[in-house]
Write a protein that binds this DNA or RNA. Structure first.
Length: 596
RNA sequence: GACCCCAUAGUUCAAUGGAUAGAAUAGGAGUUUCCUAAACUCUUGAUCCAGGUUCGACUCCUGGUGGGGUCACCA
């Protein structure tokens, strides 16, 4: 259970009680709250086992004495019971209703500004291939983490690094020159990134053919793979690029431009954006000077003409940072760009790299190097490492054509949303535009929620059937609950004045209490998500909230309630649930509809 | 070979060292003259194996087994 605002109420009283009865100080960090199990009476449970050493008493007696004290001293504790070492506390209706009234008019999930500036890097595509399912997990994660940090009061700068240079794009360029016949996105009707991707595949085909024929004419396979003429030509093109050959540069600009148009179309459809784009072509020369400076300072060393770092003391290996010919490696670049970013944004308090866990080692090394170079901010670097997405058939492999294309995937979930929603036939009042917008909203909710509800660190399975499911633990289920509340509120005529009058003489029903308790925990959940950079925490708690609300909705009348006080209290509760759900989904990058 | 990560119902996911391990889905049984049944209620079903630490272990430690990843003067 999360440490919510009750914690602040209870811990001091608990410590005072402890001192009084057992004569020792109680370490506040040992006080852990949990949700009371449904089979016992209570709202909050305190486990007293950790206190026994200090109390010198058995668990029952320790719990009993503390419980008696709390009931006597605190109005908000109605009564208690003790089961083994567990002290179950019943919190008063007044406390819960007071909480509801307090949040009734404000955003439960908006924290005061911290003034802290944080950069989140995500997406980071290569320009030779379209985006795929793996990118989607990365992008939704990065976007959601950005939103969560924003909600938590931080200032967030969202950036992507576009890997726009290198042998990969030269391969596409060369193949396009050879086989393209001047084809463009306009003449072909293909999205720009798809067109360039197509020629990357064409290159590979031609290359394989050349290797085969070389092998057939008696060359060793390894040699053939290195000597295939088309590969040599691509490498030559890269050299020309590096020496600013005007023709090569012009073609490169043109084809990358197509790719950006394609990427931007995808980004727009899935509802994400960036505050700043970095291009590898502009940063790949960075870092060299920093490494040389480190060499001078003795942080690095020279061996065989190359510059190395020795991380064996940290349990890692030695690693080359500058080749014998003085050129950079990938690590060099990353050193340089990190330094550049902190120069550009001196107020940065955190730099988060959303990158797959196959690069865990790379980032470990990078962070150690920056620390060794003496940058204080090296401690503020964070690798938001996420697991690969597997298919039911196994790994995604581009060579085997099992990669799930991002645009195709989005289209598929939207189509499914259209089919299912149309079947349910609740859209009579919708215009065509409204329908289209709703299908997009529902389809994307299904996809995003599916990818975000899993702990980012973990490898996950992408099951096409489950990802377009609209029932159960899904995004559309949450949207549906929201839409149903909106319908309720519209019919109630939303008489805002009534919402203040939630206090009253009627006891809370268990269903009402359950919903309020979920709301009550939510700020702590958001805090946790922001600390751990984990959207799944928010996703799962939102689900629990709306599930509790559905239970309430099912068995407790709202509009049909005749008692005005009960009715307005339930409307107030519904209002807060809707607002909180909307904000929580905003944190996940998911929109919610007013009706569906 | 070395290092890192993972292993929970049939399946996909939860569970700050704490009570009888939760959901969803699939399977079975129900709920609508009533605020949206994309909902709700009931039900079947799981901690890879062997040791250890602890009052208490899915969680921590050791050793297995199985799966994934990383280990270029590549990016």
């Amino acid at each position: 259970m999360f440490q919510d605002r009750l914690h602040a109420h209870l811990v001091p009283a608990l410590q005072a009680a402890f001192k009084l009865h057992f004569g020792h100080d109680l370490d506040g960090s040992k006080v852990v709250f949990q949700q009371t199990r449904p089979e016992f009476e209570g709202d909050v449970t305190i486990n007293v086992f950790p206190f026994l050493k200090a109390s010198g008493q058995g668990p029952e007696r320790t719990a009993q004495l503390l419980g008696d004290h709390l009931v006597a001293k605190l109005d908000i504790i109605e009564r208690h019971n003790v089961v083994k070492g567990f002290l179950n506390l019943v919190i008063s209706d007044a406390y819960w209703l007071g909480f509801l009234a307090e949040v009734g008019t404000k955003d439960l999930l908006a924290f005061p500004s911290t003034g802290m500036e944080m950069m989140v890097e995500y997406a980071s595509p290569n320009t030779n291939k379209p985006l795929h399912l793996g990118h989607l997990r990365n992008i939704f994660l990065g976007w959601s983490v950005s939103r969560i940090l924003e909600a938590a009061g931080h200032k967030v700068i969202k950036v992507q690094v576009i890997n726009d240079r290198g042998i990969h794009i030269c391969k596409s360029m060369l193949a396009w020159l050879r086989f393209g016949n001047g084809e463009t996105p306009t003449t072909s009707g293909l999205k720009g990134d798809k067109l360039v991707g197509k020629y990357y595949v064409e290159f590979d085909k031609a290359y394989k053919k050349e290797v085969e024929s070389l092998v057939a004419s008696g060359r060793a396979k390894e040699e053939a793979e290195k000597q295939a003429p088309i590969l040599l030509e691509a490498q030559e093109m890269l050299r020309k690029w590096e020496t600013n050959d005007p023709d090569v540069r012009a073609l490169w600009e043109r084809m990358n431009g197509w790719v950006y148009d394609g990427f931007n179309a995808t980004y727009a459809r899935i509802g994400v954006s960036f505050d700043k784009d970095y291009h590898e072509s502009g940063t790949y020369v960075l870092g060299k000077a920093d490494v040389l400076a480190g060499l001078k300072k003795g942080v690095f060393y020279e061996k065989d003409g190359a510059v190395w770092v020795d991380n064996t003391k940290e349990g890692l290996d030695e690693k080359v940072l500058l080749r014998r010919d003085g050129t950079s490696v990938y690590m060099t670049q990353d050193i340089g760009t990190a330094i550049q970013r902190f120069e550009e944004f001196p107020g940065l308090r955190k730099l988060i790299y959303t990158v797959g866990n196959e690069q865990d080692y790379h980032f470990k090394v990078l962070f150690i190097i920056l620390k060794k170079l003496g940058f204080a901010w090296a401690d503020e670097l964070f690798h938001l490492s996420y697991g690969m997405v597997d298919l039911p058939t196994g790994k995604m492999k581009s060579r085997e054509g099992t990669v799930v294309d991002a645009d195709d995937l989005v289209q598929e979930v939207v189509d499914t949303a259209r089919a299912v929603t149309s079947e349910l036939g609740k859209l009579d009042a919708f215009t065509d535009d409204e329908r289209t917008a709703l299908f997009e909203m529902i389809g994307l909710a299904a996809l995003k929620y599916y990818l975000l509800k899993v702990d980012p660190k973990k490898r996950m399975l992408y099951d096409p059937a489950a990802s377009i499911d609209l029932q159960g633990h899904t995004g559309p289920f949450i949207q549906y609950t929201y839409a149903r509340i909106q319908s309720l509120l519209r019919k109630a005529g939303m008489d805002a004045d009534a919402l203040g009058t939630t206090m009253g003489i009627h006891a809370l029903l268990p269903e009402e209490r359950a919903v309020i308790k979920h709301l009550h925990q939510f700020p702590a959940v958001l805090n946790e998500a922001a600390t751990r950079l984990d959207p799944s925490t928010v996703a799962n708690h939102t689900y629990e909230l709306v599930k509790a609300y559905n239970g309430f909705y099912q068995s407790v009348p709202v509009l049909k309630e005749e008692d005005a006080e009960k009715r307005s209290r339930r409307l107030a509760l519904s209002t807060v649930v809707a607002a909180t759900t909307k904000k929580a989904m905003w944190c996940l990058g998911i929109d919610v509809p007013e009706r569906m």
